[in-house]
Design a binder for these strands. Structure first.
Length: 528
RNA sequence: GCCGUCGUAGCUCAGUCGGUAGAGCGUCCGCCUGUUAAGCGGAAGGUCAACGGUUCGAACCCGUUCGACGGCGCCA
């Protein structure tokens, strides 16, 4: 059984207590219970190690990838029991005689000369009679696996040469430094076990937008799409952490609703039992209700817009990050926005330098984005654009072209504040310094990108709200509960909504917002 | 809602003046023990988006429909 015991010096630079057992598996409830009962500490050895505490990821039923299990005592006994708990049929005894590592960890200096096992998918295959070069990928990276005839069982050599792109496989081999290998390291295989042989993969090196959208469920395996998802994950964690640290309560507003938050935007209608309801286009009204108990709230929910938009900035379904707080002025609202956005950007700069590099985005440059952001009144923006030759006057909206002009030479986001009332929805608070305008702001991302946040102080005077609703011909009964909020202990309050996919699109420099979400919903796309 | 572009092999595309279908990649078969989007030899693979019209003859010209993509507006 000594062969099954990992050599203790392998992870010596990872500050792990010896003895350790390394395995890769999917955690089952039984396994997690076992680990807990035996006071086993668990750490992840892949890229998650520095960013996530293993305890958070080891909740019952959650999966984990590569774990280092440090048993407090009785290692062999624990190991045997642990193996007995593993899902049947997935593991053969030799699975545990070598080091199961992520591909990124496998092809590295510290593993040279070590025998490793990696699991992943075939990225590319080249074979030449007696030798095959199989580039494998997993969630952490890619590595060339060299498979020589005679160095592996015959059936393994067949597997290495006769598979398709995206076949899944388990590879065992020795890590070697080799200048001829992409990246400088390769795995010289002693086993190559095909787990799931892939049919000819429909995505080849020539790809059209249309094909990639039709095969979205397969295209999201690409390295670029994977990096985008990681960046989105990191940006959202940055926001969530910021809200938590600043005493905001995360709340869960409804998705099905009976009222339009912004009259101008069309809603998706759904059949709701024996009547009609709508998919929410904003949680704002519900968040406004919740500030009376929670004071400062935020939510991340899908929002739906039935506009037949055909632009690189719009989705029919997007993830809306919204915040609302009592006693908050619009100036304070903007301070929240610039601090939260900064937290998002700094978090992704810390967590995702490799992913950002794929999009030529410099983490150090993101770190230079700090509050305060410029605040430019609408009137001033108008004058600036007129000076640039734009033929427009007071009351004209800032469209994509105008926002591009305002931000193209900037590296830090900017606010445009106090828009004319006719351009914005009824619930905003009148600006006492210029009653033609509201106390509102749009946050424009730099580099010509444009709007990522819209926010405002909210109107608290029901008479003014009713007047505006009547002007727009809105059925007042839809707003009865919203008006109630002003009847029982109304307070000044403000909030905003951020388009999650918009900030991802900006940070990654994407051509189109649909790549900022795994399964984009647009006017022409609901499949896959 | 408005403006524009495009539908030819599994994929990316070419197809001249209207004369009956081409390439590369992929796939399949064979060769090759250091490939880097490997290479070499061979093979299979098409209702030219659909429908209608003009013509002796249509992938090509005309019309309609469908689908997709690009831009504007709406917004986040």
């Amino acid at each position: 059984m000594d062969a099954m015991r990992p050599s203790p010096h392998l992870f010596e630079n990872m500050h792990m207590a010896a003895p350790t057992i390394i395995c890769s598996s999917t955690a089952t409830n039984a396994m997690v219970s076992f680990l807990t009962m035996n006071a086993v500490t668990v750490s992840c050895s892949n890229r998650l190690s520095s960013k996530h505490s293993a305890s958070k990821r080891m909740m019952p039923g959650r999966s984990f990838m590569v774990a280092i299990l440090t048993f407090t005592d009785g290692i062999q006994h624990c190991f045997d029991m642990f193996v007995a708990l593993l899902p049947k049929g997935l593991y053969s005894p030799w699975d545990f005689s070598i080091w199961m590592v992520s591909i990124k960890n496998a092809v590295s200096e510290k593993m040279v000369g070590k025998t490793v096992q990696v699991r992943g998918w075939v990225y590319r295959t080249r074979s030449s009679g007696g030798i095959a070069f199989v580039v494998m990928r997993d969630s952490t990276g890619i590595a060339q696996v060299t498979v020589k005839k005679g160095s592996v069982p015959d059936e393994d050599f067949v597997s290495a040469t006769d598979n398709g792109i995206e076949s899944s496989a388990i590879v065992e081999g020795t890590v070697a430094e080799d200048k001829r290998a992409p990246g400088g390291y390769e795995i010289r295989a002693s086993r190559f076990i095909l787990v799931g042989k892939a049919e000819p993969f429909p995505i080849t090196e020539y790809q059209s937008t249309e094909l990639l959208l039709d095969l979205r469920h397969l295209w999201i395996r690409s390295r670029e799409q994977t990096a985008i998802m990681r960046i989105k994950d990191s940006l959202l964690r940055g926001a969530r952490n910021w809200f938590h640290e600043n005493d905001y309560t995360e709340v869960t507003p409804p998705i099905i609703t009976g009222v339009a938050a912004e009259d101008s935007t069309s809603l998706f209608q759904i059949k709701y039992f024996d009547r009609i309801a709508f998919l929410s286009q904003s949680a704002q009204f519900y968040l406004e209700s919740l500030i009376f108990s929670c004071d400062k709230v935020w939510a991340l929910t899908p929002s739906f817009r039935a506009e037949k938009s055909r632009t690189p900035r719009h989705l029919a379904e997007f993830w809306h990050l919204e915040m609302e707080a009592a006693w908050l002025t619009n100036e304070e609202n903007m301070q929240v926005q610039e601090q939260m956005v900064t937290a998002m950007l700094h978090n992704v700069a810390d967590e995702c330098p490799d992913e950002l590099a794929m999009f030529k985005r410099d983490p150090a440059a993101l770190k230079k984005i700090v509050p305060p952001f410029d605040r430019m009144p609408y009137g001033e923006a108008m004058q600036y654009l007129q000076g640039k030759g734009f033929d427009m006057s007071w009351g004209d909206d800032l469209g994509a072209v105008e926002e591009r002009e305002l931000t193209k030479d900037r590296t830090i986001p900017m606010f445009v504040v106090n828009y004319p009332k006719e351009l914005k929805p009824f619930y905003m608070k009148e600006n006492p310094d210029d009653p033609r305008t509201y106390k509102n702001s749009d946050l424009l991302a730099p580099e010509g990108f444009g709007e990522i946040i819209g926010g405002s102080e909210r109107e608290t005077d029901n008479e003014l709200i009713l007047e505006r609703l009547r002007e727009k011909g809105e059925p007042l009964e839809n707003y009865s509960w919203y008006l109630d909020l002003r009847r029982y202990g109304s307070v000044p309050h403000s909030g905003f909504g951020l388009g999650t996919e918009r900030i991802v699109t900006w940070i990654c420099g994407l051509d189109h917002i649909r790549d900022a979400i795994p399964f984009p919903r647009t006017v022409s796309r609901v499949f896959p």
